[in-house]
Structure formats: structure tokens, C-alpha cells
Design a protein around this nucleic acid. Structure first.
Length: 553
RNA sequence: GGACUUGUAGCGCAGACUGGAUAGCGCGCCUGCCUUCUAUUGCAAAAGAAGCAAGAAGCAAGCAGAGGGUCGUGGGUUCAAAUCCCACCAAGUCCA
């Protein structure tokens, strides 16, 4: 609302249609700035002069304390007590809702994420998908969307056949599967005969052989249960599990082929496979053909995926999102192209880069070269426990889990998704600097101040807010809703992670400079209101990231 | 060979889409500050006690400050480029 006021005044004075405001690099210069370069060009005048002229014409208002030219910029200072009053009042009133514009009210959002192959325990690399997906779900929920989280179970495929082959008649527990899988995979690479066996199994499964289906289902069940259990430790939950095998015999497959036939882009190639000609989409593939079936006319993963995606499109009216690794970028473009031939809008996709191991290797289930998510969580919680013991905290177990799991999530969420993360235990488990516990600590600190004060902080005196540390903090709190909004539009939780870290830093500045509990009752009330407001914002923000808070640390 | 993403301080990142003021942050490094301790060393040529210094540990998950940059390289556009465009280099990913 402050921006609006400034823009209104500037429009009136400059007769410009579009006014863009900037934030000065340094708060001493003001809260908002209007650069005068464009006007300078139009009027063939020095921008410094224009800023000066405008500063004479535009008078301060109730919301704007001062308007000062500084070189080619016209800088606006907001009315402090007004800003404080509006910000603190709305935080303390809206509480857990503060920060939401409720842009998703009455709308639904379908999110597919994780969708790990059901052949082994998830490793840290896979967790990036789940954690990003979960955070986006929470973000949309916070904005009022009704969300539905889907998990696509790829229960058809060579990797399951390999596992079935490796298991034989054994009844292994979930943890052993990774080992069995990578062993069998390596054997198969060396033996054509074994590989043939895997293909035969897969074929039987696809043909509906009851015994084989049973064996496949058995393995997939163990996997999915195990995966869900691990992910539930991160408090990541799913609403619907969709099985790829459902589409093996689905009549939709034929319908889709028939529809594609009508576009004249469906061709039977020299190997008698049905392929889709995507040459009009200019994708960077060598051949512009997207293979949908085998020579015997059975469906491939691509075709089943199209069918599944169409089902999702049907279900989701307003928002349809999928989280995929960067290795799926081109593949997804092909799916998108196929859907566009069917005149359907593909889901909004979020790609993320891989988590590499400290030698530059990608984590791979095939080679077994992985850091398991389970182990990573355990280590993080253990580390937190040790730290807490040093500080003789109470309730160590519970708090350690909040901190440890928060650290796992935050370390993944804080980095922009198109950057590779190089995993090494030391920095992943470091509890210093830009970490979740630094933020959680601010929450705990704020909680303990409020508890200690035992004073009701309603009706603070906004006129008493004057120190730069207080003002900076309130400014930052004021920006929370627009930060959340930006993260929603761009589907980027890391924006919120970065914001929270900055907020925590600013709060600590405030904490060190401003004694909250003092003889002056009026001042105490006012500062407590600031503390309480910060506490709410930290909580809301961390909640979007899926990170819990704790009253004590 | 083609396409996409990334490259910002020793290390890890933000800023880039939407060009604008002195390029921010964390870790580490360096300096100073606060508390406690005395296994070790010195002041100190009996021993012990106390002290000072060194040292160690710690705190409010400490504080304050300092240093650290060809924004991958080279061009171009612009009054203005980390930001936009082109070429190249390196890393990651995909395409048969």
C-alpha cells in the first residue's frame, strides 16, 4: 500500500504510464527509490535536476515522511510509525495466516512429486525432489489452494524385473533391496542370458501372467512401503498413489493412439513401432521421432506416461505441477509436445539439478554409489543430539529430531534448484551460518523472551519505535507477504529460505541492540510486539519449507 | 556433433528473468572484547599457596572489526552491464 501511494503520486506528477520503483542499496537512502533516467532521456535533461524538481513538487503525506533527491534518484522515506503500526497489527491479527494473499482460494492444485522407481531405498539425491515438491505443496496450501499430492509408481519396467530376478524366492527386507538390485544389475551387464531372463519376466508381467504379477507386486509393495516410511520421517505425505501398470491394459491407450492418428503425425517406422513425428517442435534430438509402442504394438513408458498425464490434467482444474530431475528435461518437452498435439496443456514443471557426491559422481542406485536418505537423516539427528547435550538442554530427543530434520530440508531447499549440490558430510551437517537451526534459534529465542516477560504486548506504542535495528526488522516483516507471493508465482521455495535467513540475521541485530524487557513498561510492550510478530513470521515461513519450530533449544 | 543449465572472495551461496547508487551473505582466515579453568610453560634456583602472562575450554549456537573480487574469458548494445546480445572456455544433464 505504500508502493501504491508512491506510484500514484509519481504518476500524477510525471504523467508516465509505468512507474517502476527500486529499493535503495542502503536503508539510509530511503525505503523506495524512483530512478529518473528515463525521464531524463525524454526531456533531454540531467536526471539529477529532474529528481530535484520532483522533490519540490511532491509533498509528504500521511504515509510518506520525506521525499529526498539523491543524485539521479528520488528517494522516499515511509512514515515509520505508520509502517510499524500497519505491519505489526496485521501480523498479530492474522497470526498463522500472515503472509498469504490467499491467491489460491477456491482453486485446486495437483502436484506430482518424488515418484521414485520402486526398486530401492531413496538416496539423498531423490530427496531433493520430495523436499522441493513438499514445500511447493505447503506453499500453495498456505496461499489457499486445495492441494492433492500424487506419486506415480513405475511398477512396470526392467528395473523391477531385475529386482524380481535378484530376489528369486527370498523374502528380503526393504533395506537389503538396494544391494540386491545393484548386484543383479552388475551381473546382468555381464551376462546376456540373465538379461534375457529379465526381459522374459517383464514380458510375462505385461502380458498379465498372474504368478509374475504377484512377484512384481510383492517387490513393489515392499519398496513403496519402505520409501514412504523414510519420507514420512521428513513429514512428506502423499494423497494418491497411481500405478503405471494400470495403464497396461487401459483402453485409454488405444484412444490416445487413435487421437494421435488424426493429427497425421503418428507414423509406423521401419521396425513397425508407432512413433510420433515431433519435427514441428524443433526439439534438440537427432531424430524428431518419439517412440510410443514396440513392434508388437504394446505400449512403452512414454505412451503410458501420456495417458497418466492426461488423467492428471482431467483431475486438476487450475494448477497442475510436476517436479522432475534435470535429466528429464528433454523427455518432458517431448511429452509436452505430444500433449500439445492433443490440444492439452502440460503440467507446470519444476526441474532441479542433481546432488553430486564429493568426487563429482552422481548418486546412482544402479552402482549402489549413494548416500541413503535414511542414513543422512540419522546422522543429522545424532549430530543435533550431541550439540544439545553440550548445552544441557532438556527434551533432547524431540528437539534433536526437529533440528536434524530441519537441517536436512533446509540444506536442500536453500539452494536454487538449477544448481548442483555437492554432497559432503561435513558441510551438509554443519550447524553454523546459513542453516535452519540459526532460524529455529531465533524462534526459540523470541519464544523465551515472550515467556520471560509475562507482559501482554497488545496496544504497543508505535511512536516509540525509532532505532534503526527496530525499523529494519519491521521493514523486513513488512516484506514477508510479497516474498511469499513471489515464491508462489515462481514456485521457488528457496526464495523463502533466503528471506528467513536474512530475517533471522536482522532479528539478532535487533536483539543485541535493543533490550526488550526493561523498566519502561511502554517500551517493553512495544518491543515485545515486535518480537511476537517476528516469531509468527519465522513460524509461517518455516512451515512453508516444512520445517518445524521448537520453543526451546 | 546438437540442446539445456551452471560459472560471483580460499570454500558454499544470494543478486541476473525486470540493466541503475559503494556487488551482498555465511564458513574459514586475521585483530580486539567477555567468562571460566590450570594438565602444560614462563615470571621463578626448595616445596606449597596465591598472582600475572602464555595456554586451554567456554558463552548469548558469543560480540565488534579488518582483510579478501579480472562477477569464467573476449567482444557488442547502452548515458549505465554481474544482469541483455554474440563467440569461446570449463562443469553438470540430455539427445543415437
Amino acid at each position: 500500500m505504500f508502493e501504491k501511494e508512491i506510484i500514484r503520486l509519481l504518476k500524477k506528477e510525471t504523467k508516465q504510464k509505468n512507474i517502476t520503483l527500486e529499493i535503495p542499496p542502503n536503508p539510509d537512502l530511503g525505503d523506495f527509490a524512483f530512478p529518473c533516467f528515463i525521464l531524463a532521456k525524454q526531456h533531454q535533461k540531467n536526471p539529477n535536476e529532474i529528481a530535484l524538481e520532483l522533490s519540490m513538487k511532491i509533498k509528504p503525506t500521511e504515509l510518506l515522511e520525506a521525499i529526498v533527491p539523491k543524485g539521479p534518484y528520488l528517494n522516499f522515506f515511509l512514515n515509520r510509525s505508520k509502517l510499524s503500526e500497519l505491519t505489526l497489527k496485521s501480523i498479530l491479527k492474522e497470526k498463522d495466516k500472515y503472509g498469504s494473499y490467499l491467491v489460491g482460494k477456491g482453486k485446486t492444485a495437483l502436484i506430482e512429486h518424488t515418484s521414485i522407481n520402486p526398486n530401492a531405498a531413496p538416496h539423498v539425491g531423490r530427496a531433493r525432489n520430495a523436499i522441493i515438491g513438499d514445500s511447493i505443496t505447503r506453499l500453495l496450501k498456505f496461499q489457499g489452494y486445495k492441494t492433492e499430492v500424487h506419486y506415480f509408481v513405475n511398477d512396470v519396467g526392467k528395473q523391477i524385473a531385475i529386482l524380481v530376478l535378484g530376489i528369486g524366492s527370498k523374502k528380503p527386507e526393504f533395506k537389503k533391496l538396494l544391494n540386491i538390485y545393484s548386484k543383479t544389475y552388475n551381473k546382468i551387464r555381464k551376462s546376456k542370458k540373465l538379461e534375457q531372463q529379465a526381459f522374459i519376466l517383464l514380458k510375462k508381467f505385461e502380458e498379465g501372467d498372474k504368478e509374475t504379477i504377484k512377484r512384481f507386486n510383492h517387490v513393489v509393495d515392499i519398496c513403496i512401503k519402505g520409501q514412504i516410511e523414510t519420507l514420512s520421517k521428513l513429514n512428506v505425505k502423499y494423497d494418491v498413489f497411481d500405478y503405471e501398470s494400470k495403464y497396461l491394459f487401459d483402453k485409454k491407450i488405444k484412444e490416445i493412439l487413435a487421437k494421435l492418428e488424426k493429427t497425421n503425425q503418428l507414423i509406423t517406422d521401419k521396425d513397425n513401432r508407432k512413433v510420433l513425428n515431433l519435427s514441428s517442435f524443433n526439439l534438440p534430438t537427432k531424430e524428431p521421432y518419439f517412440v510410443l509402442t514396440r513392434s508388437d504394438n504394446t505400449s512403452l513408458y512414454s505412451l503410458r506416461d501420456i495417458a497418466y498425464t492426461l488423467d492428471k490434467i482431467k483431475k486438476s482444474k487450475t494448477k497442475n505441477i510436476i517436479v522432475l530431475g534435470e535429466d528429464q528435461k528433454l523427455y518432458f518437452q517431448q511429452i509436452k509436445a505430444a500433449l500439445s498435439l492433443l490440444k492439452q496443456q502440460a503440467p507446470q514443471v519444476i526441474h532441479y539439478s542433481h546432488i553430486l557426491l564429493a568426487g563429482g559422481n552422481k548418486m546412482s542406485t544402479r552402482t549402489g554409489d549413494v548416500v541413503l536418505l535414511e542414513d543422512f537423516i540419522k546422522e543429522a539427528v545424532k549430530k543435533a543430539e550431541n550439540e544439545l547435550k553440550k548445552r544441557k538442554s532438556r527434551n533432547i530427543k524431540k528437539i534433536a529430531s526437529v533440528i536434524g530434520i530441519g537441517a536436512v530440508k533446509y540444506s536442500i531447499l536453500k539452494v536454487s534448484p538449477d544448481k548442483n549440490i555437492v554432497f559432503d558430510w561435513d558441510s551438509a551437517l554443519s550447524f553454523e551460518g546459513d542453516t535452519s537451526q540459526y532460524i529455529q534459534y531465533v524462534y526459540a529465542r523470541a519464544s523465551s523472551i515472550l515467556k520471560k516477560a509475562k507482559i501482554n504486548h497488545s496496544n504497543p506504542n508505535y511512536l516509540m519505535i525509532s532505532l534503526p535495528e527496530e525499523i529494519n526488522l519491521i521493514n523486513k516483516l513488512y516484506k514477508f507477504p510479497e516474498t511469499v507471493y513471489k515464491a508462489t508465482i515462481e514456485l521457488k521455495p528457496y526464495i523463502i529460505a533466503n528471506y528467513l535467513y536474512q530475517l533471522a540475521q536482522i532479528f539478532n541485530d535487533f536483539y543485541h541492540k535493543c533490550q526488550c524487557i526493561s523498566e519502561d513498561r511502554e517500551l517493553t510492550k512495544t518491543r515485545l510486539a515486535i518480537v511476537a510478530a517476528t516469531r509468527h513470521v519465522i513460524k509461517n515461513g518455516l512451515n512453508i519449507l516444512g520445517i518445524d519450530v521448537t520453543e526451546k533449544m
